[in-house]
Amino acid sequence: MILEDLYRLLRSGHVQAQGVVDTMTQPIVVLDHNLCVTNANNAFVRTFEVERDDILGESFFRLGNGQWEIADLRHLIASVIPKAAAVVGFEVTHDFPAIGQRTFLVDARRLVHPDNNSTNILILFDDVTERRRHDAEKDFIVAEARHRLRNLFAVIRAIAMQTETEDRTATEYRDIFLGRLEVTLRAQEIASSGETTDFEPLLRRSVGELGVERFHCDGPAVTLTSSKVLAVSMIFHELGTNAMKHGALSVPAGQIHVTWALEAGPRSRTYLICEWQEKNGLPVTPPKRRGYGTELIEGTSAHLGGKVELKYDPGGLTATIKIPV
């Protein structure tokens, strides 16, 4: 074989090897024994937005703004040749000069050579920025779902434990429990649909089908944060249920009128003042004992930082509810 043929063969092999490296979609660089760049593939040039000629011969740890100058990474790469070691999946998160903050997994191995005495190191970079972002989003969603499920189970347990059984049949208990559970689930749906909720639709949905044609609302537009949706729903569902069983909605002519307004309070707080008034119903007398419904209405209002006043007028129940918004 003449010298020209040997040169042609070597050149062909080099071109083919370079073609293989440039075909790789992950960024790759080759370092010599001084840890200086001897080659870089097209993916490296594109990914880090550098010129090939600007990085050839430069120390790997001086590239860019010293983005790879990490003590542990330097130590690991420096040990590849003398210890025949390999770096696998070393994670680097850095704010790179041209491409912003990215996360890479770095692999480094001795470059394979026919005589097995190569002192070059091949480094491959796997961009996992989007993968890490998706993983973080997934973890957040799973954690949020678990948190909401725990809260929901706690609410369901509280409803079950506090719904009275005395003087009630199993059917009556079931119906009351399922009604309260239904409004809880509807409220959770509403709360998860956005950061704020309009008060009037929430009020109507909380009362549900309980005498919808005899339920009248009037007041300005008010929005509630999602953290208040469940509590407010429970208050008005309880009032509506009581009206259906004992109050205005228990007779054909009975009606419910709900009016509300916003009022300035201390420390620049704004309060929703809502009045629930039952008319044309059965004569009303104060209950002989406090039931779960009364405790729920008063306790939930207090939990929100407000208060409620219940008046058992003969003409119908009046509830004045004050809630900070």
Rank of each mutant, 00 (worst) to 15 (best):
F236R: 01
F236L: 12
F236E: 10
H237M: 05
E238C: 12
E238A: 04
E238Y: 04
L239H: 04
L239Q: 03
L239A: 11
L239T: 13
G240V: 13
T241P: 06
T241V: 03
T241E: 13
N242E: 12
N242W: 02
N242V: 10
N242M: 12
M244S: 14
M244W: 01
K245Y: 03
H246Y: 14
H246Q: 15
H246K: 02
H246D: 09
G247V: 06
A248F: 01
A248D: 02
L249W: 05
S250V: 02
S250F: 01
S250H: 00
V251Q: 01
P252W: 01
A253F: 06
A253S: 13
G254T: 05
G254N: 00
G254D: 00
I256H: 01
H257I: 03
H257Y: 06
V258F: 07
V258S: 09
T259R: 15
A261L: 10
A261S: 08
A264R: 15
A264K: 11
G265S: 13
G265V: 14
P266Y: 11
P266I: 10
R267S: 13
S268T: 13
R269Y: 02
R269P: 07
T270S: 07
Y271W: 14
Y271C: 05
Y271Q: 09
L272R: 07
L272I: 04
I273N: 15
I273Y: 01
E275Q: 14
Q277V: 13
E278I: 12
E278R: 15
E278H: 08
K279A: 08
K279Q: 09
N280I: 08
G281H: 06
L282K: 00
P283F: 04
V284P: 02
V284R: 06
T285E: 05
T285D: 09
P286R: 01
P287V: 01
P287L: 02
P287C: 04
P287T: 00
P287H: 12
P287E: 10
K288G: 11
R289K: 05
R289W: 01
Y292T: 15
G293R: 06
G293V: 02
T294Y: 05
T294F: 01
T294E: 10
E295I: 15
L296K: 12
I297S: 06
E298Q: 14
G299W: 04
T300V: 15
T300F: 03
T300L: 11
S301C: 11
S301L: 05
S301R: 03
S301P: 10
S301N: 13
L304H: 09
L304C: 11
L304Y: 00
G305T: 09
G305R: 05
G306D: 08
G306R: 09
K307F: 09
K307Y: 15
K307A: 11
